[in-house]
């Protein structure tokens, strides 16, 4: 029963397909977002334990919490991904203002 890993892998493949096949800058940004989601999902499903509770210890409960380390790393990853998407989008806006197009084939030409 490894369906979360398979699903994360499928999501990664869709993102990779989107990056490779589409020529629009925004489609490429969306593909990078999808790949980021898949990595986050994979890390969280690695840390999950059947019947585990949230990693918030209150009182003296004996239940097993799920892995807090991976969750902390994924929080970092989500926020950094947001910052990276904002930067990529601003580069795309700048390229559109220069070339009036977001097609990567058309903005190949260098211009000052």
């Amino acid at each position: 029963m490894n369906f979360p890993y398979l699903a994360a892998l499928a999501l990664f493949s869709v993102g990779l397909y989107c990056i490779l096949v589409k020529r629009d800058l925004f489609k490429i940004i969306y593909g990078i977002c999808l790949m980021g989601y898949s990595i986050n999902l994979l890390l969280i499903s690695l840390g999950y334990v059947w019947g585990g509770t949230v990693p918030i210890i209150s009182g003296s409960s004996t239940a097993v919490p799920v892995d807090p380390l991976l969750q902390a790393m994924v929080i970092t990853a989500i926020v950094i991904e947001f910052a990276a998407v904002a930067l990529m989008v601003s580069v795309a806006i700048r390229l559109f203002e220069q070339y009036r197009s977001t097609d990567v084939k058309k903005i190949r030409r260098l211009r000052g």
Binding site: V21, F26, F82, A86, V89, A92, F96
Partner: peptide, 20 residues
Amino acid sequence: MVVVLVIALARTHRKSSEPE
């Protein structure tokens, strides 16, 4: 992220270019 993308699309254009 959706708000950022919508603002960016408002500053550029909506129609996707042709794929490969």
